[in-house]
Amino acid sequence: MKYNLITSSITAFFIMAGAAATSNALANEKEIQANDLVEMFEKLGGKHPGYRKAHAKGLCASGTFVPAPNKHFTGAALLSNGELPVSMRFSVGGASPSSDEKAPGTRGMGMQIKLPNGTLHTFTGNNFPVFAGKNPEIFHGFLSTLLPDENGKSDPAKTMAFVQQNPSLQAHVMWNQNAKTAASFANTEFFGLHTFYFEQSNGQKTKFRWNIEPSLGVKTLEKAEVANMPTEFLADTFAQQLKDETVSFTIMASLGEAIDSDIDPSQQWPTERPKVALGTVTVNTSGGDACNNTNFDPNIMSAGFTPSADPVLRMRSPAYAISFGKRLSNQ
């Protein structure tokens, strides 16, 4: 099993024959807890005290958010207070702080916007549009098939059999097989994966999913280009882009309909759903360690916004809290 499949699957959660049937049964018999996932990440990626359990390698940045008020989010404090400060962190998939920047696959983004009253609104996303599994049990079962045996070898056939028996994994695995290396964090689109709601003062609810579009366009590297890149290039590339041009991202909200699932992050909504802009984030600086102790929990939102009942989204808060506690205590 390729390393980028392992890292993509792990970071999908923070930033998806007889042996497989047995694994599937076991996964569905046991209700997975947050600590089960954190421990699984450590088994797959190794223990790295003081670092995040996923997306360990990252780049801090800061900037400003300029809202784009619209009728679907009328009265939202997030969109009613003018320009707001933003703390950001871009990351590479994997549990190692030395994850390979040249490897294709997962890139992540965490963003916290601070409102005047101190309230935070968090956006946490990845560069893949679908999650690896419709619930924590399938996700955990999938990860368990990637564990090496007593000889240090994993069994790709076991993993693929599990994927075949669990259709909600298939779109993510397909994405991973076709993924290329991101040219820059500034040229990467990020997806929130989950469904959220906003309730206006008149009681009207807006069902939405968000994605973040880069103003500089999405760019990836071909294998020949990757071969000529230095081992680490993402931080320097981003810093140079900040010097040469404006680096910004537009936060877009896709408006869902009743038939669109709000509990299954492994399913994409139809592309024809209407989209509105929530605002634009312009990055001003990068580097430093200001974001190192920030917990980018996507369930931390400003007034009027609420999370859906998506079981993967609900699992993120306790899993992030456990990882955050371990990181602060150098575990």
Rank of each mutant, 00 (worst) to 15 (best):
T7K: 14
F13R: 07
I15N: 13
A19I: 03
N28F: 14
E29F: 12
E29P: 06
E29R: 11
D36L: 06
D36T: 00
L37W: 08
L37I: 13
L44I: 06
L44C: 01
G46M: 13
H48F: 12
Y51A: 07
H55Q: 13
C60P: 07
A61H: 06
T64M: 00
F65C: 02
P67C: 05
A68H: 03
N70Q: 10
K71M: 08
G75K: 04
N81W: 03
R89L: 10
S99L: 08
K102A: 15
G105T: 08
G105P: 07
R107L: 04
M109F: 07
G110Y: 03
M111D: 00
L115V: 00
G118L: 05
H121A: 10
T124S: 13
N126V: 11
V130Q: 00
P136A: 02
E137H: 00
F139H: 15
E150T: 12
E150M: 01
S154W: 09
D155Y: 09
K158D: 13
T159E: 11
V173K: 03
M174S: 05
W175E: 05
A179V: 10
A179Y: 05
K180F: 06
A183G: 14
F190L: 05
F191D: 01
E199Q: 14
Q200P: 15
N202S: 08
T206N: 09
L216F: 12
G217C: 13
V218T: 13
L221A: 10
E222N: 14
M229S: 10
M229L: 11
L234A: 09
Q240Y: 09
Q241D: 05
D260E: 10
I263G: 02
P270M: 12
K275M: 04
L278K: 03
G279C: 00
S286P: 03
G288I: 04
F296C: 01
P298K: 07
N299V: 08
P307G: 05
D310N: 00
P311K: 04
P318R: 00
F324P: 04
G325C: 08
K326H: 15
S329E: 11
